[in-house]
Deep mutational scan, measured.
Amino acid sequence: NNDALSPAIRRLLAEHNLDASAIKGTGVGGRLTREDVEKWLAKA
């Protein structure tokens, strides 16, 4: 759900042209964290 994304995470996803639904969030309530996105980028 994009409503649950912080502005910083939205920007990070946009910079790398990523789809938030492709990344499993580990934050509160399954929210994406910066670490989630960075780990996903490291694997890609």
Rank of each mutant, 00 (worst) to 15 (best):
Ala44Asn: 13
Ala14Glu: 11
Arg11Glu: 15
Asn2Cys: 11
Val37Pro: 00
Arg34Phe: 15
Lys39Glu: 14
Ala14Gln: 12
Ala4Phe: 13
Leu41Asp: 01
Ala8Val: 08
Asp3Leu: 09
Ala4Gly: 13
Val37Asn: 00
Leu18Gln: 04
Asp3Val: 10
Leu5Lys: 01
Gly27Met: 02
Leu12Tyr: 08
Glu35Pro: 06
Lys43Tyr: 13
Ser6Thr: 13
Asn17Phe: 07
Asn17Leu: 06
Ile9Pro: 00
Lys43Asn: 12
Ala4Asp: 15
Glu38Asp: 09
Ala22Asn: 09
Val37Lys: 00
Glu35Ile: 08
Gly27Ser: 03
Leu18Ser: 04
Arg34Ile: 15
Thr33Ser: 04
Lys24Val: 14
Arg10Gly: 06
Val37Glu: 00
Arg31Ser: 12
Ser21Lys: 11
Ala20Gln: 07
Arg11Ala: 15
Glu35Phe: 08
Gly27Thr: 03
Leu41Gln: 01
Ala8Tyr: 12
Glu15Tyr: 13
Val37Trp: 03
Ser6Asn: 07
Gly30Tyr: 01
Thr33Lys: 03
Ala22Leu: 15
Ile23Lys: 01
Lys39Met: 14
Ala4Thr: 13
Gly25Tyr: 01
Gly25Arg: 03
Ser6Gly: 10
Ala42Arg: 10
Ala8Trp: 11
Asp3Asn: 09
Ala8Gly: 06
Asp3Trp: 02
Val28Ala: 12
Trp40Pro: 00
Lys39His: 10
Lys43Arg: 12
Gly25Pro: 07
Arg34Glu: 14
Gly25Asn: 02
Thr33Phe: 00
Leu18Cys: 05
His16Val: 03
Asn1Pro: 13
Asp19Ile: 09
Ala8Phe: 09
Ala22Thr: 09
Glu35Met: 08
Ala14Leu: 12
Asp19Lys: 08
His16Asn: 07
Arg11Gln: 15
Asp19Arg: 05
Leu12Ala: 06
Leu13Ser: 00
Gly25Phe: 02
Arg34Met: 15
Thr26Val: 05
Ser6Met: 05
Asp19His: 09
Glu38Met: 13
Trp40Glu: 10
Ser21Ile: 06
Val28Met: 11
Gly25Leu: 03
Ala44Gln: 13
Ile9Asp: 04
Gly27Pro: 01
Ala20Asn: 03
Ala44Tyr: 15
Lys24Met: 11
Val37Thr: 01
Leu5Gly: 03
Asp36Glu: 02
Arg34Asp: 12
Val37Leu: 07
Asn1Ser: 13
Ile23Leu: 11
Ser21Asp: 11
Arg11Ile: 12
Asp19Pro: 06
Thr33His: 01
Glu15Asn: 08
Asn2Ala: 13
